[in-house]
Nucleic acid binder design. Structure first.
Length: 270
DNA sequence: ACCCTCCTGTCA
DNA sequence: TGACAGGAGGGT
């Protein structure tokens, strides 16, 4: 469920809540999540919380000062919720799959569909997605043009490729293409210089705006504090099939690409 | 570019 | 009952 802006929201909140805290123990509720490396986390201190692609990544150091990385990928339905010792787990914790128990509370992984994944490694490269981070300075117009290259893949599907750009998912792919006024089925490598410029700006603008509003709750996203994201009311096309385009009034279309819904305005996006 | 799979829940 | 769901990896 969570894409870059939602994961960024969670990581920023957790950085304030748990940086400096020590891991007392791990409770793996869903055996699917068990892995031998998880044991390494015990007694480690969290030095930093960040986002890499769509993962919440914890940088930790063990008693010998060696660094360790824990990545939480929430996939479709996962939530990473901070539950301080002063509070009880509630209705938003119906599907607890794991707990990372710290000194003053626990990080609870709640995930109905059980797709979430935990990765522990001594090498940060193991938890770093291969794609370019679109909000970093290295994501320039030139870089985007290089990445697009000559590929004939439909642009919407290309935007979902984590080995090209890290962090864009199904909601923001549609929103970005609407903002850039480009049709989702256009071959990725066929954009003019002007369209490439619009796309580069739209990617950064849409993601930044969504972060500013703490992400999008379409049906079930909750941040680390259990609150919904505020970007939903700014969605211009996602989930609006049949409704009028906010820009021109034409009916928003829904189309399936790669077994996933794409929403776009047939008039504004050519 | 298509299909299916991993899961479970919700909605028409 | 069937379609669909913010993800991703596998196989044709």
């Amino acid at each position: 469920m969570p894409e870059l802006p939602e994961v960024e929201t969670i990581a920023r909140q957790l950085e304030l809540l748990v940086a400096g805290h020590r891991v007392r123990r791990l409770e793996i509720v869903d055996p699917k999540l068990a892995s031998p490396a998880l044991k390494l986390l015990r007694n480690c201190r969290i030095s930093q919380v960040m986002r890499l692609g769509k993962q919440v990544v914890f940088e930790l150091s063990d008693l010998k000062g060696r660094r360790l990385w824990l990545a939480v990928h929430l996939r479709m339905s996962g939530r990473l919720l901070w539950v301080p010792d002063t509070l009880k787990e509630g209705a938003e914790h119906r599907y607890v799959r794991a707990r990372i128990v710290l000194e003053r509370g626990a990080l609870v992984l709640d995930d109905p569909r059980r797709f979430a994944v935990l990765t522990v490694s001594r090498a940060v490269s193991d938890v770093t997605p291969p794609g370019v981070e679109p909000l970093r300075t290295e994501f320039t117009l030139r870089r985007l043009a290089e990445l697009l290259g000559e590929t004939r893949q439909p642009l919407k599907l290309w935007l979902l490729r984590q080995d090209r750009l890290a962090g864009i998912g199904n909601i923001y792919a549609s929103e970005i293409l609407f903002a850039a006024r480009i049709h989702p089925r256009r071959p990725a490598g066929s954009l003019s210089a002007e369209e490439t410029t619009r796309l580069q700006r739209a990617i950064r603008h849409v993601l930044r705006q969504a972060i500013a509003h703490c992400g999008t709750t379409f049906s079930e996203f909750l941040d680390a504090r259990g609150r919904e994201g505020g970007f939903g009311r700014f969605l211009k096309v996602y989930g609006r099939g049949g409704q009028p385009c906010l820009s021109c009034g034409a009916a928003i279309e829904r189309e399936v690409q790669g077994q996933r819904s794409t929403y776009f305005c047939p008039h504004c996006q050519r």
